[in-house]
């Protein structure tokens, strides 16, 4: 079941954010959480045997069994924003490394 796999990914990401002390690992955990969430939203719109919601010469009319296009559109938005936040997080991590020489939150501030 895809939905339970997605929930497991969300739990894994949350566990990583709560326990890891390395900035890069926190960002990777955030990404895992986000992928789980995206997978979950897409799975909400899945129909058994459904077609991709694109009209083509083979699937030409709106009577056919299409999957729900709305969650896919929302996830498209979420993926792009995820890329933006990841880039910003990695930039902050790079700045932190340039200042403290470490990615570990526990070792910072000792100087």
């Amino acid at each position: 079941m895809l939905q339970y796999a997605a929930i497991v990914l969300i739990m894994l990401g949350l566990y990583g954010i709560l326990t890891k002390r390395n900035v890069i690992k926190i960002i990777v955990s955030l990404n895992i959480l986000e992928i789980g969430l995206n997978l979950f939203i897409v799975s909400v719109g899945f129909v058994d045997g459904g077609l991709a919601p694109i009209f083509t010469s083979q699937n030409a009319t709106n009577d056919l069994n299409f999957v729900d296009p709305l969650p896919q559109a929302l996830v498209l938005t979420a993926i792009v924003i995820g890329v933006g936040t990841t880039a910003l997080g990695l930039a902050i991590a790079k700045t932190i490394y340039a200042k403290y020489g470490t990615f570990n939150l526990d070792e910072m501030g000792e100087k």
Binding site: G45, F46, P53, P69
Partner: peptide, 19 residues
């Protein structure tokens, strides 16, 4: 929240987008 794969798209707002 129906079971995985048993969604009825016709009952959702998405059907208007498909139509």
């Amino acid at each position: 929240f129906p079971e995985y794969g048993t969604v009825n798209v016709a009952s959702r707002v998405s059907q208007a987008y498909l139509d």
